[in-house]
Design a protein around this nucleic acid. Structure first.
Length: 544
RNA sequence: GCCCCGGUAGCUCAGUUGGAUAGAGCAACGGACUUCUAAUCCGUAGGUCACAGGUUCGAAUCCUGUCCGGGGUACCA
């Protein structure tokens, strides 16, 4: 609908010999101003050196005379220079049919057709259960994948992790100490060891299997390996409960094995971006616009996380993706500019890479903020959250806020007020819709796309249709913004309009033709709600 | 110190990329079930869009500065 008008306006500009500008069309907030509105006369004014109202008037006149398909019912030029359009009602009803025809694919765009996207998210090392912080990244990443899929992309979901290095050594030691404790020995638990109960459980498992045979073997790989396997399966399970499944797990180790990190060092050295200082190997980040140089290899000979991280991102480019997306939390904001700098200086098309950063989740429990740390284990796990409020609510809460705002998650509120929860509002709208259709079918009425839709004339009906027709535009918008919460907001307003429609008009009446038309409208609503919920990864119940 | 994110109704947050009279939900108050599901709907009340300048036809939105909150600034990840 919007697109139709944009095309018309563009043609008008051309015919009137006006310069090209970005034509923007929006539904005005105030219904008095019609269905759609454009500000382009005001954008043209400085270029043409003419008063905007005069330009608007001539565009309006042109459109009145050149509207072959009778799309525009009325067009007005209003000071200071807005163009307000009223769209012919039969245009709405005509398009309602296409929703039924396209059904489950209604809303899809082809903008990413034939393109491959790699989305990296979660990427938590297997040192403990996923926290709510990981959860936000997980749901955000997964939803972004769905959004891209609806825009035609083929998607690869990737989880990057490191099961070597200091963190994992500490994990092994922590398990070993708990194991010795089980053997009745006095232990000196490391101050920076992992203190969660899950360490205890892993130690018990090892004790059950190995008895006391590992008493004097602090370096036995059993501790670390058992912990890693146990924690990783726990992580995968937490993710699966929320409907997440990854296509690939990329282990940092392979960048050592295939020498990728050393190759990268050579290339950077050739470019003069590497130097040695105080026994360490440094990246000359200041030469590519960064504030400070960074250590890539410590004086101990061990690489920092930065080096494999860089090599990893180069592998993403080498694997031939058209779009590369990283999702991570605000605590990692400082890592990606270095990566971008490297990617850029090696000549890779950095514009293919997008970084989505989400701010922290703060959990309020019993009115108090829970400060979270994996090591100290005073966190709320993602599993606990899922237990308390369910997968749908978890998913919805994590994407209903913009990723750049700090998310306040009041546990007690989420639990106590679950009846007032916005996700139920959405799902309830869907269930209502389904129930109406079920009722109709029970009465022998089928949804028929060829019904006389011109009978849909009331304000609320037209408003509902208008909303439904916006859905494809929303999908496209998501492609540009990558903000899932825009979809959540759209679905909320759609649900509101439907609930209002439900409260004002009856669908099933003894007027057969009107009933048929309203059934089409109802079915179209079901389609859009169901498609939208699918993108959000939330179930669309037929009854509640 | 420097960098990133935020500051909008009592609370949690939207605000379609600069548009016309700033919007929801919760909390408060008052209405609507003999109806296709009241997990809903209708109404009342609630605002110096942190503050001060600037840009222009027009600013919550853009630029500068200040204040407040969070994060980062490691030879941790």
């Amino acid at each position: 609908m919007k697109q139709t008008l944009i095309e018309k306006l563009t043609r008008a500009l051309h015919s009137l010999n006006y310069p090209e500008v970005k034509v923007l069309v929006q539904p005005p907030k105030n219904p008095e101003f019609g269905d759609l509105s454009s500000n382009l006369a005001m954008l043209l004014a400085p270029k043409l050196k003419m008063p905007p109202i005069q330009i608007a008037t001539s565009i309006a006149a042109f459109l009145r005379e050149n509207d072959e398909d009778d799309f525009i019912k009325a067009v007005e030029a209003v000071p200071p220079g807005f163009l307000n359009f009223t769209v012919n009602k039969n245009f709405y009803t005509r398009h309602l049919k296409t929703i039924l025809k396209q059904a489950r694919s209604y809303g899809r765009s082809a903008i990413g057709k034939g393109k491959k996207a790699l989305v990296e998210f979660v990427s938590a090392n297997p040192t403990g259960p996923l926290t709510v912080g990981h959860g936000r990244g997980a749901i955000l990443g997964d939803t972004v994948c769905n959004m891209l899929k609806w825009n035609g992309y083929s998607i690869q979901r990737e989880y990057y992790f490191n099961n070597a290095g200091r963190q994992m050594r500490m994990l092994g030691i922590s398990v070993y100490e708990r194991y010795r404790e089980l053997l009745g020995e006095k232990i000196n638990f490391p101050s920076d060891g992992y203190q969660g109960d899950y360490i205890q459980e892993i130690a018990e498992k090892i004790h059950a299997e190995y008895g006391d045979s590992l008493r004097e073997s602090p370096d036995s790989p059993v501790f670390r390996k058992t912990a890693e396997a146990s924690i990783f399966s726990n992580i995968e399970n937490s993710l699966a409960r929320l409907g997440l499944r990854f296509d690939s797990f990329f282990n940092e180790q392979q960048l050592y094995d295939n020498k990728a990190i050393f190759d990268l060092l050579d290339i950077l050295r050739d470019k003069g971006l590497i130097y040695e200082k105080e026994g360490a190997t440094w990246f000359r980040a200041t030469a590519v616009g960064r504030e400070a140089d960074k250590v890539l290899i410590k004086s101990t000979g061990e690489p920092t996380y930065r080096l494999p991280d860089m090599a990893y991102h180069i592998s993403k480019f080498e694997r031939g993706f058209d779009l590369i997306i990283d999702v991570f939390g605000a605590d990692h904001v400082d890592t990606f500019p270095d990566i971008l700098a490297v990617v850029k200086s090696l000549g890779y098309p950095q514009e293919k890479m997008k970084v989505l950063i989400h701010q922290f989740v703060t959990i309020l429990k019993d009115g108090e903020q829970v400060k979270m740390s994996t090591r100290k284990a005073n966190f709320i796990t993602l599993d606990q959250l899922t237990d308390e409020v369910g997968a749908d609510v978890v998913r919805y809460f994590f994407i209903m806020r913009g990723m750049s705002t700090h998310l306040n998650f009041d546990l007690d509120l989420a639990r106590d007020q679950s009846d007032e929860n916005p996700v139920f509002y959405l799902q309830y709208a869907h269930a209502r819709v389904c129930n109406i259709i079920k009722r109709a079918e029970a009465a022998g009425l089928q949804v028929d796309a060829e019904s006389d839709l011109s009978l849909l004339q009331s304000d609320i009906e037209l408003k509902l249709i208008q909303r439904l027709l916006e859905f494809p535009e929303v999908i496209l918008m998501l492609h540009d913004s990558m903000e899932p919460q825009q979809l959540a907001n759209y679905l909320q307003t759609l649900a509101t309009v439907f609930h209002k429609f439900y409260a004002t008009e009856r669908v099933i009446t003894d007027q057969l033709r009107l009933t048929a038309a309203r059934l089409v409208l109802t079915e179209a609503t079901r389609i859009v709600l169901s498609n939208g919920l699918e993108i959000l990864g939330i179930t669309a119940p037929a009854r509640m």
